[in-house]
Amino acid sequence: MADPIDDKTQTELEAAAFRRLLEHLRSRTDVQNIDLMNLAGFCRNCLSNWYQDAAKDKGIAIEKMAAREIVYGMPYADWQAKYQKEASPEQQKAFAESQKTHKH
């Protein structure tokens, strides 16, 4: 079993894992948000909302689009123009089904 980790180190490890997740998602522009939602129940927008919520909990105001830029690594409108595709009927159906059990 691993040695106990102090709170500071745990926060540093969690931050490093989050940065790596962002790098991974930024490199996988082929994976659409609807695919993430259908498979995992969260997407890049969810991450940006959670980031914004965490900032708010610390008394820091971050606008929605600023939080999205942090997650996407570019302005959201740029990401949409470059990488976002129209969802297929199958993706839309799977999304509608997944929303029945998704907790917002």
Rank of each mutant, 00 (worst) to 15 (best):
M1F: 11
D3C: 11
D3W: 10
P4T: 09
I5G: 00
I5V: 15
I5F: 01
D6N: 08
D7E: 13
K8D: 12
K8V: 15
T9A: 15
T9H: 05
T9Y: 06
Q10M: 15
Q10F: 15
Q10D: 14
T11M: 15
E12M: 15
L13H: 03
A15E: 02
A15H: 01
A16D: 12
F18K: 01
F18E: 03
R20W: 05
L21I: 06
L21Y: 03
L21E: 02
L22W: 01
L22M: 12
E23R: 14
E23P: 06
E23K: 14
E23Y: 06
L25W: 06
L25D: 07
S27R: 11
S27C: 08
D30R: 01
D30L: 00
D30P: 04
V31W: 07
Q32C: 05
Q32V: 01
Q32D: 05
Q32E: 03
N33G: 09
I34T: 04
I34S: 03
D35H: 05
D35C: 06
D35P: 00
L36W: 05
L36D: 08
L36G: 05
N38W: 00
L39E: 12
A40W: 14
G41A: 04
G41V: 03
F42H: 01
C43F: 02
C43L: 04
C43N: 14
R44M: 09
R44F: 08
N45G: 12
C46N: 05
C46R: 02
C46T: 14
L47N: 10
L47R: 01
L47V: 07
S48N: 02
S48P: 06
N49G: 03
N49R: 08
N49W: 01
N49Y: 02
Y51I: 12
Q52M: 13
D53A: 11
D53V: 02
D53G: 10
A54C: 06
A55R: 07
D57T: 13
K58L: 15
K58V: 10
G59Q: 00
G59S: 05
A61T: 12
A61W: 09
I62H: 00
I62C: 05
K64Q: 13
A66C: 08
A67F: 11
A67V: 11
A67I: 08
A67H: 10
E69P: 05
E69T: 04
E69I: 00
Y72C: 00
G73P: 13
G73R: 10
P75S: 04
P75D: 07
Y76P: 10
Y76V: 12
Y76D: 12
A77V: 09
A77N: 03
D78L: 08
Q80K: 15
A81K: 09
A81S: 08
Y83R: 06
Y83M: 03
K85L: 14
E86N: 10
A87D: 14
A87Q: 11
A87L: 05
S88F: 01
S88A: 09
P89C: 08
E90M: 12
E90T: 09
Q91V: 11
Q92R: 15
K93R: 14
K93C: 10
F95W: 03
A96I: 09
E97P: 00
S98V: 07
S98L: 11
Q99H: 07
Q99S: 07
T101P: 04
K103C: 04
K103G: 03
K103S: 04
K103L: 07
H104F: 08
H104L: 09
H104N: 09
